[in-house]
Design a protein around this nucleic acid. Sequence first.
DNA 1: GTCTATATTTCGATAGAC
DNA 2: GTCTATCGAAATATAGAC
Lengths: 204, 204
Amino acid sequence: MVATDAEPEQSTRDRILDIAMDLFIEQGFDKTSLREIADQLGFSKAAIYYHFQSKDEILLALHMRLHEFGRRAMERFGEAPATLEAWAMLLDGVIDEIFENRRLILMHQRNAAAFRLHHADEHDEANQDMEEQFRRVFSDPAVPLRDRVRMVAAVGTIMGGLVLSGDLLKDVPSEELADLIRDAIGDLLVSRPATRRSPRRRSR
Amino acid sequence: MVATDAEPEQSTRDRILDIAMDLFIEQGFDKTSLREIADQLGFSKAAIYYHFQSKDEILLALHMRLHEFGRRAMERFGEAPATLEAWAMLLDGVIDEIFENRRLILMHQRNAAAFRLHHADEHDEANQDMEEQFRRVFSDPAVPLRDRVRMVAAVGTIMGGLVLSGDLLKDVPSEELADLIRDAIGDLLVSRPATRRSPRRRSR
DNA sequence: GTCTATATTTCGATAGAC
DNA sequence: GTCTATCGAAATATAGAC
């Protein structure tokens, strides 16, 4: 986010993707027409078709960006771990990169429906990306249910923080926010000391 | 969720809304045509227009369902509280109802972009619903940033749990899941005892 | 690589019969 | 309340010139 705007040469293809990402975040994929994208680029709608075969291919390219990000972030860990300690370590390691790619992830989350339809076509080798690995651990019966809930809670905490930083806390520096989130995740994943709080009430 | 299927008489209007909700969850609002909705109902597209003036009105009616749910859930608390303790109590009180309205909330979250466009037209009295109250607390500078992050984390924990229960853990009873989530939220919002963990590493 | 048409399709919405 | 038939708008995509 320290974007020096002296990017040496940004390809037209990348400019299209950047603008599309912004519009997809704000309006959603379906409500964003190619005309809008073209207008912001300063040229006509038909020109986009020189760089992409279809509107869907733009979405796919953005998905590849996330996939690539996930691949980089996960390559240090062979598999998504099944213990709370290792999970804490994993998230702690990737949270900075997650914040750096905030808008990409936000876009992906806000257009989950649109992406879902495309996943049907390409679940061939997509099972080595981050999301799929997470899914596998979350649904693994060998992992205690309590632990899985904690892992999901930690991910939900990060996602909540991302949304917060995007919509309401645009002025708060990412590092400060990331540290607070790290702290919260610690409370979720690191077992409490012997001291027990009052036993939880059973609902109903 | 103990739905005895002896619903006395479900109005056609409600049947439309139920089917629309399902389709909006799976495909998204924009990718769901009125024809699809009509097909599942067993009659033609034009018939829908007897019950709703437009497709948008269907979305609006679903939004009203959520709004009504939020109103019921929040009426015990005047305002969304700004302290962690009160926040914990609030969430603890509404989490069961949240799980009972799981699909409605999921639908709302997955089509946030579509709903956003309609909020522009009707933010007249919409500031007394749950979402708006939450937003206000999250962006209130008077509340310590750490606390706001914790509150968001707690909400993110619930949302994560909802997605989990919908996609991966359809067999796990809601009550069990809700209790585990309650527990996790407790760890997020209730201050730890004097024991301190190792000081957090400062990233970068 | 980008342009100006234009083709094609999909879908929301309406008209009017039953 | 539901039907068939059709309109009109919008948006994706293509053709072909420059």
